[in-house]
Design a protein around this nucleic acid. Structure first.
Length: 926
DNA sequence: GCACCGACTTGCTTGTACGGGC
DNA sequence: GCCCGTACAAGCAAGTCGGTGC
């Protein structure tokens, strides 16, 4: 049923609900109501308008809700907990989704632009290069949930056989000393053979990390790990702040404006329709039928369009692409697997039941619940119908401490404003930024503006900030020394203050807000050699902030007396609740969004993974197409082909152009000649700074066509010139969209990460207890992290930890020697020698001593393994891929199949973020 | 076709809570 | 109870990419 009304303006008093964000999620049943992503796509064209008409009549009108609607009660829905029984739900979801579609009011009432655009897109699609591909990428109606390992379903990187050339030899090395070892190529393969190899094997054989991990079971082999390197020689520039935003021409603060009137946000004529067109196009181009919970109805048009371009591929064909051994394995395991699936689902669901129970309990208490309205974002670019929130919370005003810094050895009195900025600098005395001249220069330049022209302080060199630094250290220590009770009460107090800002009510559903705290003033900590590092991030005030809220929702009270918001908007085509201009780069914005666990974010996440999954059906054709174009006479085509190859194979980012006032980093399209060195016969050495100035260092054997092309792209150019001079991200993405609707460069990263996880989990999970299975998962996770070059800095205590481990191992080895001596004496009937203190030891019999020796040996082995793992992982960040690239349904389904409690893999935050994936069928494969 | 804007996702670092070992 | 290590969450910087206007 529809939500009768939206929540009260003074929302969110239920303190007992605060710590249980999960219960507010749209869960199994509501996600069914929301439709699985593919359902959503499938239904999009029919649904959208029907939904909007429903919105306008039955529920709260779009942008026109009555006040009563917003102040009324939120009706409980049949929302079920996230971790609902997995076996029954998916089908039910489809049924309910389809049913709701059928019953929802009708046909597209606004066909003209969107339909024609769709048709156009499909026509384009028809004419796209894919059509001409000799090889099909689209299996005829292959059920994706079937665990059949078609090779095209695997990441290209993983396709290289052990010892073949496609190795990632080395990743970023933060220490800069990572010696690159080239994996010796095996026999060079043609592109087809490449396509037909198990993808993940490429990495597993190459990745040192994975090698080393597997070595934990084969001690003795050597491995190293990638590390980050701090480098970069970008010009130090403090470029002019960008053009003032058009926002500067906005109406005065506090003025209320509807989205239509917004001066900044132009009426999004193209937005909504484009969104629909995109979805419709995707829908129509959907080349396959799936039989899992994410069933997709195939548009016959699209099938024809795409299939005509592709050689029909039967299921047998798929199997032909699978090594015989794997096929045999498949057939022998399928029976046991299917029987185990039921059992597993039961077990896992019981592990999930805990969460369910809790959720249900809270749901019962909650007055907020899921509505049965159409999902947000399913309207014409519309993301929500009603939105209520309390705005943002500001950091407390600065409290002067009065500690005097020294200038030329003399104490200096500063005004509170001057002192505040001095303190920002002083507290950073023990950071690496102090060794960066750019940081200090920028800081001083901004501080000087506050000090004034004629201030005593004229240069930074004569400043001594240590008194303030020491004061700060003492404050930190005091805080540390507080009793648990004191800490607890402070925390509670803070929570009390922040409580009302923590939640928003979106379409009647209580959702967590992500970053409701306004960023405090400070010094900009740009990464790498950022030209603006050290600049002052001024304090943000209400007059800087634009609030976005439902038309009939009460406008949040400005928390600072006497001030008012810059602007109030009612734009339901966006998801942000507030924004302000970035003080460092005023043409950019800082947004306040809902939390990752919110329905809106979850839905968008799901769409992302569905798009990546769709790529699986196109990847063969795309690879065939770009391989063909390595030799194209059209330079642009050739560059696109090579760039796509690198993005696909090395999971490189697209690489947008950057301004001079940003750190000098690159991605694929912005690679410079000096970043790629060809080493005959066909090795490419990559060395560049990528996102966040993380170094990407790698040596890869590439196909000869790529190698020759790169040589050609480099010829006659300086090191600092663009490798791909005919290319930028928009051209590349425009081309990719011709190959698959909605395809962009970043989809390859998601695809390759997820397919690698799926493939590795399926290949490497061979029984064992839960702990062993978790290790398999972590290995797969690590492999993906390496593919994506996710790094972290070595912890400050790493070497101390390693030394400690070494000491313990040595100690245990000493114990072992003693035990051996005792054993030998015991066997001769002699008593043990005295211990180190000269005291006599217990006289044990030989059997007991042998047991002790075995135990000690096991301890030593475990510590050695821990040591190796710690060393291996010191620069690898595992979290990023889990949060952003790995389709959670792979994980959830694997957990269900293998009786692994999901909590072993996902922490509380991830469980909340991925609530939408919890009812996936155990047979789900990416 | 390009520069710019706007909205979002991705990704590393940091601070802190928590739990185990001594 | 303290110390240490780990895991987690928060914070915010830095990407991607679609859209718009000229």
């Amino acid at each position: 049923m529809a939500v009768e009304a939206c929540s009260t303006p003074s929302l969110l008093e239920d303190s007992d609900e605060e710590n249980a964000p999960l219960v507010f999620k749209r869960t199994s049943s509501s996600s069914k109501q929301n439709l699985s992503n593919s359902d959503t796509k499938k239904l999009s064209s029919q649904k959208r308008d029907g939904q909007s008409s429903r919105n306008s009549s039955d529920v709260c009108p779009v942008n026109g809700q009555s006040s009563s609607a917003q102040t009324g009660r939120v009706v409980s829905s049949a929302k079920t907990p996230p971790a609902k029984s997995p076996l029954s739900s998916p089908k039910a979801a489809n049924i309910s989704a389809k049913t709701s579609l059928i019953t929802s009011p009708g046909a597209n009432s606004k066909p003209s632009s969107s339909t024609s655009a769709t048709v156009k897109q499909l026509e384009n699609h028809k004419n796209s290069p894919v059509v001409k591909l000799p090889k099909p990428s689209v299996p005829a109606a292959k059920p994706s949930s079937t665990p059949v390992d078609s090779d095209d379903d695997k990441p290209l990187m993983a396709k290289l056989p052990s010892g073949s050339s496609r190795a990632i030899v080395n990743h970023g090395n933060k220490d800069g000393d990572g010696s690159s070892l080239v994996q010796k190529p095996g026999v060079e393969e043609d592109e087809d053979s490449d396509d037909e190899k198990p993808l993940s094997s490429r990495y597993s054989s190459k990745s040192k990390l994975v090698e080393s991990i597997s070595k934990t079971r084969n001690p003795g082999e050597k491995k190293t790990l990638p590390a980050k390197v701090q480098q970069n020689g970008s010009a130090l520039r403090d470029g002019p702040v960008g053009k003032s935003s058009s926002l500067s021409n906005k109406r005065p603060p506090g003025e209320v404006k509807s989205s239509d009137e917004s001066a900044v946000k132009k009426p999004k004529l193209s937005g909504p329709t484009a969104a629909i067109n995109k979805k419709q196009a995707m829908l129509k181009a959907e080349p396959k039928v799936e039989d899992n919970d994410d069933d997709i109805l195939i548009s016959q048009t699209a099938k024809k369009t795409f299939a005509s371009a592709s050689k029909p591929k039967s299921n047998d064909d798929d199997d032909d692409h699978v090594p015989i051994t794997q096929r045999m394995k498949k057939s022998t395991t399928s029976v046991s697997q299917s029987s185990s699936v039921k059992k597993v689902a039961k077990v896992v669901s019981s592990s999930l039941k805990k969460t369910n129970k809790k959720s249900k309990k809270i749901i019962k208490k909650s007055k907020y619940s899921k509505s049965s309205k159409v999902p947000p974002g399913s309207g014409e670019g519309q993301k929500w119908t009603t939105l209520v929130h309390n705005g943002v919370i500001f950091p407390p005003p600065y409290k002067p401490h009065g500690v005097k810094m020294l200038y030329k050895g003399q104490p200096v009195t500063l005004t509170p404003e001057q002192e505040e900025v001095a303190t920002m600098f002083a507290v950073m005395l023990d950071t690496d930024y102090m060794s960066k001249p750019q940081f200090k220069e920028n800081f001083f330049s901004d501080w000087k503006k506050i000090l004034g022209k004629n201030h005593t302080i004229q240069n930074l060199e004569n400043c001594d900030f240590r008194p303030i630094y020491e004061w700060h250290q003492k404050e930190k220590e005091k805080k540390k020394q507080m009793t648990t009770e004191e800490k607890k009460s402070l925390k509670e107090e803070k929570l009390k203050q922040e409580e009302k800002y923590m939640w928003a009510i979106v379409d009647g559903v209580k959702e967590k807000v992500g970053n409701f705290r306004v960023e405090p003033p400070g010094l900009f900590r740009g990464r790498g050699e950022h030209p603006k590092m050290g600049k002052l991030k001024k304090r943000i005030r209400p007059r800087d902030i634009t609030i976005n809220i439902g038309k009939d929702a009460p406008i949040p009270e400005c928390p600072i007396r006497g001030e008012r918001w810059k602007e109030i908007r009612h734009d339901n085509t966006v998801t942000w609740l507030a924004f302000w201009n970035d003080p460092i780069n005023p043409k950019e914005f800082k947004y306040v969004f809902l939390a990752a666990s919110s329905t809106l974010k979850g839905q968008s996440d799901k769409e992302k993974y569905e798009k990546a999954r769709l790529l699986k059906d196109y990847i063969h054709g795309i690879r065939t197409a770009y391989t063909k174009d390595f030799a194209s006479k059209d330079p642009m085509k050739k560059q696109i082909a090579v760039a796509t190859y690198l993005i696909d194979k090395l999971a490189l980012r697209a690489g947008n152009e950057k301004d001079d006032d940003e750190a000098d980093t690159v991605g694929c399209c912005t690679l410079k000649v000096e970043n790629v060195e060809p080493v005959p016969p066909n090795i490419l050495k990559f060395d560049f700074l990528g996102k966040d100035s993380i170094r990407y260092q790698n040596e890869v054997e590439v196909e000869s066509g790529v190698f020759k092309a790169i040589q050609q792209f480099r010829s006659g150019k300086e090191g600092s010139e663009d490798l791909f001079d005919k290319l930028d991200t928009s051209k590349l993405n425009a081309h990719l969209k011709e190959l698959m609707p909605g395809l962009t460069a970043k989809v390859f990263r998601t695809y390759n990460a997820s397919i690698t996880l799926d493939d590795m989990l399926s290949r490497k999970t061979n029984g064992g207890d839960v702990l062993e299975k978790v290790v398999v998962y972590q290995q797969a996770n690590k492999e993906v992290a390496i593919i994506c070059n996710h790094q972290r800095t070595v912890s400050k205590t790493h070497s101390a930890q390693m030394s400690r481990l070494n000491e313990k191992i040595e100690e245990l080895k000493g114990v072992l020697e003693e035990l051996k001596t005792d054993l030998s004496r015991a066997k001769k009937g002699k008593p043990p020698l005295k211990n180190a203190d000269g005291k006599p030891k217990r006289n044990l019999n030989p059997e007991a001593l042998e047991r002790k020796i075995a135990q000690t040996n096991a301890k030593i082995e475990k510590m050695e393994r821990d040591k190796e793992t710690k060393e291996d992982l010191k620069t690898v960040a595992l979290g990023t891929s889990k949060i952003n690239y790995l389709d959670p349904r792979i994980t959830v389904a694997w957990c269900k199949r293998h009786e692994v409690p999901i909590e072993k893999i996902f922490n509380k935050s991830l469980l909340a973020k991925f609530a939408w994936s919890m009812d996936v069928d155990p047979s789900f494969r990416f």
